[in-house]
Structures are given as C-alpha cells and as structure tokens.
Amino acid sequence: MSETKAKTQGQVVQTTGHAWDGDLQEFNNPLPTWWLWAFYATVVFAVVYWIFYPAWPVGGTFTKGVMNTITFTDSDGSQKTTHWNTRSLLLKELQEGKHAARSREYTEKVAGASYQEILADPEMMEFTRSMAKGVFGDNCAACHGAGGTGVVGLFPNLADDAWLWGGSVEEIETTLREGRYGFMPAFKSALTDRQLDDVASYVLSLSGEAVDADAATRGEKIFQTSEGGCYYCHTSSGTGLKSQGAANLTDQIWTVADVSGAATPEDRKAAVKRVISNGVDRRMPAWSERLSDAQIKLLTVYVHELGGGQ
C-alpha cells in the first residue's frame, strides 16, 4: 500500500494512501503505546496459561497443565487428585468452600439430631428455616405455592392444621420420600344425579353447613352403606382414613372441593358434588432420589412447622 503524508494543523501525519472523491484521505496514526503493550501482555498470558492449564489437543487427549492439580474427597471417601478442571473444582468447593464450611457445622448437627431435638432447639430451628426455605422454593413452591398454601383442588395447603396423610414428622417424611397418590373413584356413573345431590348435602352437613335435612338423611344412607361406600375411606364419622389419604369431611377445611370460593349454599353444594362425581386423581412426586437425606430432614421439619405440626 503506498503511503503518503498529509499536513494537519501544521503537523505532517501518515495517511493510508487512499484518496476518495479526489482529496478525502485517512490518517494512519501508530497504535498507542499502552495498547500495544497490553496486547503483548495478553500474548504472554496465553503462553503462561497453556503451560499451567489444560490447553492443546494432542492426538486422543490434551495437555493437562503442569503443577496444577486438584485434590478432593470422592464419594467412596478416598482422596482423588486430578488435573485442573471445573468438575473437580466444584467438588472441592462443595467440600471445602466458604459456604460449605459455614453450613457444615449446622448440617452435621441437624443430620445427627433426632426430630425431637431439632424441634426443641431454637438455634437449629433458625438454621432449618433458612436452609429449608430455599429448598422448598426450588422444589415444592411450583405446586404448593411459595408460602405452602397450595391451590384448592390441585395441590393441598401445607400451612393449615389439616393433614391428609398425617402431620407427625415421621408421616411427613414418608410423604416426602415416597410421594403420595391421592385417589378417589369418580361416582358419576355409580350414582344418579339425585343421589349425588343427596350425598353432597350430607357431606356438607358433616361440617355444620345448613342443608336440606331430608336430602342429608337420604345422603347419609348412601354414604354409610355399600351403595356409595364412602365410609370405607372417609370412615363412618367422616374424619377420613389417613392410610388412604382420605380427606376429613368434618373440619370445614376443603382441599379438593372449592367450597370456600363459593358464594351461595347452592354453589357450595355444586362444588362438593363436582368432586364426588369426577373423583380425585392427583400425585405428590417422590423426592428420595432427587433430594439428599439432609434436605429431606430439613424440609420435614419446615413443613411440620408450617402446618403447626401434630
């Protein structure tokens, strides 16, 4: 490229040699010195990096970097040393990092303590609340809501005093580990529309709702005999069998039927009737594979406290 000089403000400056439209030229100033040195520095950095970190492919493998290893404790308890890589780095951080060191003391304490000891110890409860809140948010909140209040009909409220499967720590832990299958058959083909109306009236009367007394009496017969067979799961008093996860129908707390959202007595009956005719088929997933034992323990205590426990 031919280079020429141009004059500007009294100085002679290099130009690139192009001229457009007759006299339009482009300066060709040298790069600033600081920039040039910064560039050389990055080149030097790259060479140093190649030596100490995994860098160049060689056949079926690659250079692993010299004098740069990571040692961590493997799952089987043995010490393992590898070349520098992000997976080993992660394992080491999980074992020795700032966060790990801070929470290990409590995690070990909670893991070693019985539920009774944890519940009685304000300091451990404080730790449990703060740790479990995050785990709950990542795994449970999508269904049960951030505060555990659930969605009527779909996912039960964990922040109330009513438990389908039991509210003791042992029962809650089983719920979390194994999951639960909430099932009630649909009665729309087994019972007539009138019978559904009657049995819905009886169910509402169980929790003190004012209903047509004749209808409730007819409904009671369906509920308490093999005609409906409701008492198999809900028991004859209506309080529900825990082993079936059958709802307590006497407590004014509704988990599937949207009774609280209904304005008039007719709407309340319709909501209950809908559940009886369509049945219930909903699942709580099992968590024993996804979450660690310690996480399940923290969550058990957390959920127990949310619902006032039992």
């Binding site: 909140a141 999508a142 269904c143 969605v151 996912f155 088929d281 997933p285 996804r290």
Partner: peptide, 19 residues
C-alpha cells in the same frame, strides 16, 4: 419426574393457575 403430569398440563395451559 420433578412434577406430576397434572402439574405440567395445568402449567402449560395457564402457568398462572399454579405459579
């Protein structure tokens, strides 16, 4: 396997029904 099939269906139809 994190959520149930019912959750996915409800969520895809209208995410705000569950979240």
């Amino acid at each position: 396997n994190k959520y149930s099939n019912e959750w996915h269906v409800a969520h895809l139809v209208n995410p705000r029904d569950v979240v």
